[in-house]
Computed example of a mutant assay.
Amino acid sequence: MNLANLSLTDLKNGWHSTETGFACNYCQATWPQASSPQQRQEHLELVHGGNQAQLLHLKSRYNTLTPKQQDLLTAFASGIKDQELADQLQVAAATIRHQKFTFREKAKQAKLYLATYESVFAHPDSSDQLIEPPAQATMLDDRWLITEDEIAQTLQHYFNFDQEPIRLKRWPQKQKTIIIVLTRIITEIPIEQPLTEPEINSFLKPVYFDYVTVRRYLVDYGFLQRSADGREYRRPNDNRKD
């Protein structure tokens, strides 16, 4: 899920609009324009356990809810009475009411921040739009402050686009430039397809002779996922348009 491309309404619905209709926020399911909200809702319930559950347990660096908070919100959503929940958790009912108050206060803070942000950046210069880091990225700092214009200029400088597949002329030295180069190399890897190391190498070898370095950086920066035993690689689907 790429939060940069989804509105608050999209997140609450569990689906978003496309040029031809609608698409699920969590998988590749699509629906035509004439489809009903009920059809989409049924898909979310049957395939994903409901949109609310997906939002509560979303694996994203932006989901800051602790497991305890996730459990509490799940309980609140069920309509359980404060006293009954307090009895189950063996705490005072006042503790449950205080937790609800805390959630409401955080929601107010988030609402004010969102309104302020949208007011400030209502008409951003398209050339200053920053790219969205991969959902799995962990080393988030100013290296990721990359505009679309920076990408276009850097890729023209470092790649030979006259060949198929593309060829990287040389490996950059600066970390920010490496990230930009990786944003293009990763598009050579199929999305959501389990691949062995030799299979990953077969995609990277034509791009650059030191494919081992490329592979390592793709993993380090979150463009590729690698299993714990190192035998399987996967390019996650973050809904970014290549």
Rank of each mutant, 00 (worst) to 15 (best):
N25E: 08
Q175H: 02
A94L: 11
F159A: 01
D10N: 09
F159W: 09
K205Q: 14
Q225D: 04
Q69R: 12
F101Q: 15
D82M: 11
L72C: 12
H98E: 13
L114G: 05
Q83D: 13
P198Q: 08
Q52F: 15
Q90I: 09
Y117P: 01
H57V: 04
L65T: 02
Q153L: 09
F22E: 03
F22P: 00
E132N: 13
I185P: 00
R167K: 15
F161C: 04
Q156M: 10
A228H: 15
S17C: 07
K174R: 09
D229T: 08
I186V: 14
L73R: 07
F159D: 01
D87P: 00
S7L: 11
P134F: 06
W171C: 03
E148T: 14
S127T: 15
Y221L: 05
E197L: 12
P236K: 01
Q225F: 05
S78M: 10
L6N: 04
D125T: 07
E232C: 10
D10L: 06
I189D: 02
Y217C: 03
L55H: 00
K12D: 09
L112H: 09
A94K: 12
G14D: 02
Q153G: 00
E105R: 07
S78Q: 12
A23D: 07
D220R: 14
I166G: 01
R170G: 01
T30Y: 02
Y217S: 02
Q38T: 02
Q88F: 11
